[in-house]
């Protein structure tokens, strides 16, 4: 069965094409492209990706305006029905701003834009996005962000840890994130937000293929479902 995925594009998104290429590369089916002003998503989606970039120029707060756009209402509805949603970088910011994921992403503690490969540990290998990894596996993915400093109150952080909702953790302090959190899952496990870019690491000639494993996990888990 064809893997039916959609990539949302906001004004200022710039990783949408990479995301679509990655989804097609891994699943063999071209991803549908959806414009932010659309109020409906294509029918019968298996996977929704909210890509990185600088939606609305990061005005007000990163992801704030995009999270209130018409298409996000449809994304939230689909997420609540259990459709897998992946938000990367600015997409992660959009998902926290929309309330699909807890916490907020603040300016990097050292104030620099950080653009490099970073080592990560897979903390939860049971999710539909991470089942192709071993628990505790160390992987490498590129980051490129100015506002990736994950913040949530202590109670929320304890809950996330207790429920196994920290998907990835930085192995180096790169942006000041609370407890080194690089990616979090929602309670149902069908929404993942992460600052590192899996779509930029889908084959070794691009510097690594750990991102491939993430998309492959999602494609496989849907095929098995």
């Amino acid at each position: 069965m064809a893997f039916r995925s959609a990539v949302i594009t906001f004004p200022g998104s710039n990783c949408d094409r990479d995301m679509a290429v990655a989804l097609e590369h891994v699943s063999g089916t071209p991803a549908l492209r959806v414009w932010h002003g659309d109020s409906a998503l294509p029918e019968g989606l298996d996977f929704i990706a909210v890509p990185g970039g600088f939606s609305y120029g990061d005005y007000l707060r990163c992801g704030a305006i995009a999270s209130r756009s018409p298409v996000m209402r449809a994304v939230i509805e689909q997420a609540e029905r259990g459709v897998p949603v992946l938000g990367v970088c600015n997409g992660f910011q959009v998902l926290t701003e929309s309330g699909l994921l807890p916490g907020a992403l603040m300016r990097n503690a050292q104030l620099n834009f950080t653009c490099r490969d970073v080592p990560l540990r897979v903390e939860n290998s049971q999710s539909l996005f991470t089942s192709g990894f071993e628990a505790g596996q160390e992987i490498s993915l590129p980051v490129a962000h100015h506002d990736g400093n994950y913040f949530a109150d202590e109670e929320t952080l304890d809950r996330l840890e207790g429920e196994g909702r920290v998907a990835f953790r930085y192995l180096e302090a790169i942006n000041g994130s609370q407890r080194g959190i690089a990616g979090v899952l929602n309670q149902a496990g069908n929404v993942l937000g992460m600052m590192p870019h899996p779509e930029r690491a889908i084959e070794d000639v691009l510097g690594g293929s750990d991102g491939y494993t993430l998309f492959e996990s999602a494609v496989k888990s849907l095929a098995e479902a």
Binding site: L60, R68, G103, M106, F151, A152
Partner: peptide, 9 residues
């Protein structure tokens, strides 16, 4: 509450 401030932070 809906837009101008992020009540998390």
């Amino acid at each position: 509450r809906k837009l101008l401030a992020n009540m998390v932070i």
